[in-house]
Nucleic acid binder design. Structure first.
Lengths: 166, 166
DNA sequence: TAGACGTGCTTCGATTTCGAAGCAAGTAGA
DNA sequence: TCTACTTGCTTCGAAATCGAAGCACGTCTA
């Protein structure tokens, strides 16, 4: 049975609220910069970034969706837009015929290069201006285990089957 | 002109990515719990919470929108739903006839009471299980100034219409 | 007091998002 | 091999979100 003493003390509440606010404000600022610099949404940018960073320049749809914390149907929609814009290609996965492998195109990489400086500038200013180098290291040290813990406890496709539980 | 050397080092990048992922995963988990326990979205919950926490039980629309980092039109939409559900009331502000003052109803407070334990359980488990008390304090210490800095630099309704003042 | 401008909220249209249902390809057991 | 069951993605319909435009009230200045 789950520990019933999972109440949230004031300090935790402050951290939680600050986290939610910071991520919301940061997302808005990023969205605006990306739109101005390259007519991209944050989701689209994240897709291109993940592909760009991959050694092969490609990923499966499901892996992408999980990586950027987005629904599968939402990713299908965005992949359609990105493909139409010539920034990615979609092809059946070689090893599993029902899988789809997404790859960045040269145009996609070029666009990343175009928006990345502005992106880093915004993140640097908004998020890291008030933080020292040590602070940034500490933040990473705190959040990385949290991320891993979350990924471990809420593994795949959101709702793992729900019955009459209401 | 802002400092052009605002590049992001690997440590910062890790912190940034972890922050985005954590907030996304957390939001999804919260959304699901709120829907199951009280048929609320996270945005609606935040509105009710802010009102519930207010000494007067009410807020102006604009203040609410800023507090929860949401567009004004989006808040209008949600306020319509919440009012229809009898969880809030809307009335012209006493001191400014064009303003709208939103207040929680008893039903609204009751619903908050209904979903809050589950909410705290989710936040406690997902966010604070991997963190010690000191870690939580540190997280708050890091993120609070960031939040304040963001709020200070991107003040009101998104683009403040650069006038001659800039 | 009048005209011009600023502010607070809502309406509108377009886009994005999600979950559920659907479909095709893989897998396991008889 | 046949027949379920699983898995990976897309389609579909409903809902949420945003920015721009609109409207009504406030404020300032002459």
């Amino acid at each position: 049975m789950p520990d019933p003493t999972h109440s949230v003390d004031p300090v935790q509440l402050g951290a939680y609220f600050a986290l939610i606010e910071v991520s919301g404000l940061l997302r808005h600022a990023i969205d605006q910069q990306l739109r101005e610099d390259g007519d991209l949404t944050f989701v689209q940018f994240q897709v291109l970034m993940r592909l760009d960073q991959s050694p092969t320049g490609s990923h499966r749809m499901t892996d992408l969706a999980d990586a950027i914390v987005h629904s599968r149907s939402g990713l299908t929609y965005q992949a359609g837009l990105l493909e139409k814009a010539g920034l990615i290609t979609r092809a059946p996965s070689p090893d599993d015929e029902r899988g789809v492998t997404v790859s960045v195109t040269e145009a996609g990489r070029a666009l990343i290069g175009q928006v990345l400086p502005g992106h880093e500038a915004v993140v640097g200013r908004m998020l890291f201006d008030p933080l020292s180098r040590d602070d940034a290291r500490t933040l990473a040290r705190l959040l990385t285990p949290v991320r891993d813990h979350m990924r471990a406890s809420a593994p795949r496709s959101a709702t793992p089957r729900r019955r009459r539980g209401t």
